Amino acid sequence: MSKAQETVLEIDLSALTHNFNYLKSKLQPQTKFLAVVKAFAYGSDAVEIAKHLQKLKVDYFAVAYVKEGVALRDAGITTPILVLHPQSINFKTLIDYCLEPSLYSKHVLDEFIKITQELSQKNYPVHIKFNTGLNRLGFEENEIDTIVSKLKNSTSIKVKSLFSHLAASEDLNEIDFTNIQIEKFKTIAKIFAKISGYNPWLHLCNTSGIINYPKAHFDMVRAGIGLYGFGNSVEEDKNLKPIASLKSVISQIHSIEKDETVGYNRAYASKGKERTATIPIGHADGINRIYGNGNGYVVINGTKAPIIGNVCMDMIMVNISNVNCKEGDEVIIFNSKYKASNLSEKAKTISYEIITAVSQRVKRIFLP
């Protein structure tokens, strides 16, 4: 593992394998494993992550939007791909690339049936999303009759799965609510099977659901953040390995006097004689302005250096008065030791936000 000489995102594929195997070990042998690779595989690289997971024989992928699925197909991914939030304008493209839609409302169901009929499709696989308490996307339980009626009137689509999404599976203070969601989903599945006459696959669990609610694994689980090394709890984080390390380098060091200011809007004023380092990474690379003014830090030669002043588009400045370093030294924003979850907590946000924000202009390096 070489020292960074520019801003790079290192992606450790062996850590990805570890996380996949750990999460899979929680499942019964017959339970299918869906890997969520939306948002550039949580800020890493969707194509390379999907290629690696396909070699590990993952059963399914999920993306948020049709464009993401197209990119995977163009890269040679042949594993089934569920599109979680498709828009009707993209349905023809979705079909052209053999992607499978989540249908979550009467409007999208009607639109998809219409286009599959126009394209003379037969039993095109779809996934019906139900709302069990997250109140984001999904049909309600009282719409099952309508859904089944539409399905029976068309041979162009076939329901492959029913699914829902847990709202607070990581929060052990919300066990009662999560159990209500699980029972509601089971009721929906039972009613759907009775009215339709067949039993689609069922899937409900995200990463925290996999870990905390084995009774709700059903036919398939959907792992997102866990694959990338975060278990949504201190205890589970120990069992997972963050796959991404965001690194940069010191471009320049300044010595400033008391009351001199640093950066735009003179947001930081020196308390005395201080040394600052300028680093080539900014909010255009994913380091949000919230991390400025002491809310975030980097690590240089094993010592934390607070971000001072406002984060610039392409640069941050840090206080290195107590750091033994020189120009050209490596800078760690986050890695497996100095975790994104720790950095995000200091800024009162979550690891998902910082890792998915890493810009596509940041060079990716893949470690086997």
Rank of each mutant, 00 (worst) to 15 (best):
E6H: 14
L13E: 12
S14P: 06
A15T: 05
A15V: 06
H18V: 00
S25I: 11
L27N: 12
T31M: 07
K38P: 11
A41S: 15
G43S: 10
K55N: 10
L56I: 02
K57E: 14
F61S: 01
R73F: 07
Q87V: 08
I89A: 12
F91Y: 15
L94C: 02
L99G: 07
H107V: 14
L109I: 08
I113E: 02
E118Y: 12
V126K: 11
L134C: 00
F139M: 01
V148N: 09
S149Y: 14
A167G: 11
L172M: 14
N173T: 10
D176G: 05
K184M: 06
G197D: 03
G197N: 03
G197M: 08
P200S: 03
W201R: 13
L204G: 07
F218R: 07
R222S: 05
R222D: 00
V262Q: 01
G272Q: 13
T278K: 13
T278F: 14
I281H: 02
I287E: 02
I287R: 01
N295L: 05
I308P: 11
G309F: 15
I316G: 06
M317F: 15
M317T: 15
M317Y: 14
N342T: 04
K346I: 00
A347E: 03
S351K: 03
I355F: 03
V358G: 00
K363V: 06
